[in-house]
């Protein structure tokens, strides 16, 4: 028993190593800080430049991250929050915990779509339907074809009430179909194998061969090509354009190390951070990189048109759109 207690104490206290250097605390989602995620490499690269300690605090995902901030309010220990997406920034702003960092953001492919002063983009990827070459021959070439296609070729989606890609697809449908969205959903629902609570569940079902299509990201095939050396999975390019997920970070007003935090945000859009994004976070870098993108990225589809709705409109309509989706798909 004493052995266990002492182990517990070690577990509990190993979290706060004493240190004279200033500590920069960054809240992020947990896949960012795994061994194979960008977190450890970014920490190493940044600590070389700052004479500080970078502490990641990992919270399940972007939505949980925002809820954590709402619970903590001004007592939050975060200096920076990294990992919200554009659909969450209105609620994030409403917490009044963020302030503009005033850093120079280099221009990128998404600058025209996203230029918020407070929430700075660090990576992005358009959503896409990923299809399995071993299970189907002719993937849909448009959202319309997906909706109208054969009902025996199913797709796995995520629930917009619990998952960010799920919400992204809901907005995608709404952006393309507008008032006709309920009819489109009704048609599409015949092709839906299931709607999972999160991305992980749907992607596992998909790679297990339960359905030939899944909603994921344009960049997903890059993982399979680079890490698994297979071209079995590909993204379907849709004529209407692809809805975009942009991941952003923001400076906390009440943080203790604001200068350090601003310095980090500047670092975030520089190669020291951005070079790790393509093969560790499997997204497109939103800032400057030194290394060129891996060759496999050249094989990815590049959408003709990127779609993004004003976060205010999303925030005002989210509940109504979800209700509309529920009504159309739950029979």
């Amino acid at each position: 028993m004493r052995f266990i207690l002492s182990l517990l104490t070690i577990l509990a206290f190993s979290i706060n190593p004493a240190s004279a250097k200033p500590t920069l605390t960054i809240y992020t989602y947990d896949s960012f800080t795994t061994d194979w995620g960008p977190g450890p490499a970014v920490k190493k690269a940044y600590e070389k430049t700052c004479d500080c300690t970078l502490k990641w605090v990992a919270i399940a995902d972007g939505v949980a991250l925002l809820n954590r901030l709402k619970l903590e309010g001004t007592s939050t220990k975060a200096d920076i929050v990294l990992g919200l997406d554009t659909n969450l920034v209105v609620e994030a702003k409403a917490t009044q915990l963020f302030e503009p960092a005033n850093i120079d953001v280099p221009s990128s492919k998404i600058s025209k779509l996203w230029s918020d002063k407070t929430f700075i983009a660090y990576d992005y990827a358009p959503f896409a339907v990923i299809w399995d070459r071993e299970k189907m021959k002719n993937p849909p070439t448009s959202l319309q074809e997906l909706v109208d296609g054969p009902v025996d070729q199913k797709i796995i989606l995520q629930d917009p009430r619990t998952s960010t890609p799920g919400l992204g697809f809901l907005i995608w449908m709404k952006t393309v179909y507008g008032d006709k969205a309920p009819e489109a959903w009704q048609k599409l629902s015949k092709r839906i194998l299931t709607v999972t609570p999160g991305w992980s569940q749907s992607y596992s079902l998909f790679t297990k061969g339960e359905a030939p299509m899944v909603l994921s990201y344009v960049t997903s095939p890059a993982y399979h090509m680079i890490a698994e050396k297979t071209e079995r999975y590909a993204a379907a390019k849709f004529a209407e354009g692809h809805y975009l997920q942009i991941e952003v970070a923001g400076l906390i007003k009440t943080g203790k190390n604001k200068d350090l935090a601003k310095q980090f945000l500047q670092f975030m859009v520089s190669p020291g951070f951005q070079d790790h994004i393509p093969t560790k976070n499997w997204m497109f870098p939103a800032g400057k990189t030194d290394k060129p993108l891996p060759d496999e990225y050249a094989k990815l589809i590049s959408p003709e048109k990127l779609l993004l709705r004003d976060p205010k409109i999303v925030s005002q309509n989210r509940k109504a759109w979800i209700a509309e989706w529920l009504k159309a798909t739950s029979k």
Partner: peptide
């Protein structure tokens, strides 16, 4: 949720979870 096939197969637990998410 995962095996249910769509939002018509939902439990109260999901609704509770949802109300603490977005």
């Amino acid at each position: 949720l995962t095996l249910g096939g769509g939002p018509s197969s939902t439990t109260l637990e999901v609704a509770i979870y949802q109300s603490l998410r977005f």
